[in-house]
Amino acid sequence: MSLMSFFNRRSSAPVARERLQILLAHERGVLGGQSDLVAKLREEILAVVRRHVMVEHDNVQVKMNRDADISTLEIEVEIPAPVAVGAR
């Protein structure tokens, strides 16, 4: 078991990096002047998608990456397979 976990060991730094990116995108919205842009986008995107396909709240991920030159908005909507087929 310990040998297995040795080989399966995933670096922790990329986990830290991703957790921070998600958390800070949220906090910058809440605490900064943007009045929670990411959370609002998430709600509205969810509402639009739900008009056509039933998706769970947790299946919509909105990520905002701030950079000096360019900022990107990443939207990921996970649609359950059977519903997606039935929708059209």
């Binding site: 730094a13 921070l20 701030r66």
Partner: peptide, 18 residues
């Protein structure tokens, strides 16, 4: 440690805080 993936790298922190 950063090279071994155990610590955030300089680039990671710079990218996050810009």
């Amino acid at each position: 440690r950063a090279e071994r993936g155990e610590m955030l790298k300089v680039e990671d922190v710079l990218e996050i805080l810009s």
